[in-house]
């Protein structure tokens, strides 16, 4: 009986020791969450980490997984992070752009504007105060680029 009792105590102690060493899910969650960048959500169930959210690229997604795997007590990582898809920039077609650029520069008689493959090239001269107005008008027309070669007076 005596040996049995001490065996029980030893068994309980061993159990306590191990569960004491083993980080709890909530602790793991807090630790990993603190290391991840914003936009990533960390969930932990029995040491299994699930990552969700959105990042800019594949490298950031892989990095997030690495961070979680490196955390003590993590058994596995399910990486459900989405990589943001960036829509390409829409550039106006030349005929539309040419017409709109012509309208925009009409009131700046000293400015000449050429449009080729989306690039608006400005030559001539302009008053400093008018330049910002002209640039604002051209920038909303969806050009590929504004090549400003104007002489600012």
């Amino acid at each position: 009986m005596k040996t049995n009792n001490s065996f029980m105590i030893a068994a309980v102690a061993v159990c306590l020791f191990f569960s004491g060493c083993k980080p709890k899910d909530a602790d793991i969650q807090a630790a990993v969450q603190a290391k991840e960048t914003s936009g990533i959500t960390v969930a932990v169930t029995k040491g299994e980490v699930t990552l969700t959210g959105e990042v800019a690229d594949d490298a950031a997604k892989a990095k997030a997984e690495e961070i979680a795997k490196a955390e003590k007590g993590v058994k596995s990582v399910l990486n459900n992070i989405m990589v943001k898809t960036v829509a390409p920039v829409v550039i106006a077609e030349d005929p539309v752009l040419q017409k709109n650029v012509a309208d925009a520069v009409k009131d700046f008689p000293t400015v000449k504007a050429d449009v080729k493959e989306g690039v608006v090239t400005l030559t001539g001269e302009i008053q400093k105060t008018s330049l910002i107005k002209l640039m604002q008008r051209l920038s909303v027309l969806k050009p590929k680029k504004i090549d400003n070669k104007l002489t600012v007076k």
């Binding site: 604002q136 909303v140 504004i146 400003n148 600012v152």
Partner: peptide
């Protein structure tokens, strides 16, 4: 909008670099 254009003008005086299209309505 004007505030953003002022900052643009400070970073790239007279908008000569041709490396930004600031389309803010």
């Amino acid at each position: 909008k004007d505030q953003l254009w002022d900052i643009y003008n400070q970073i790239d005086p007279n908008f000569t670099s041709g490396d930004l299209v600031l389309n803010v309505n």
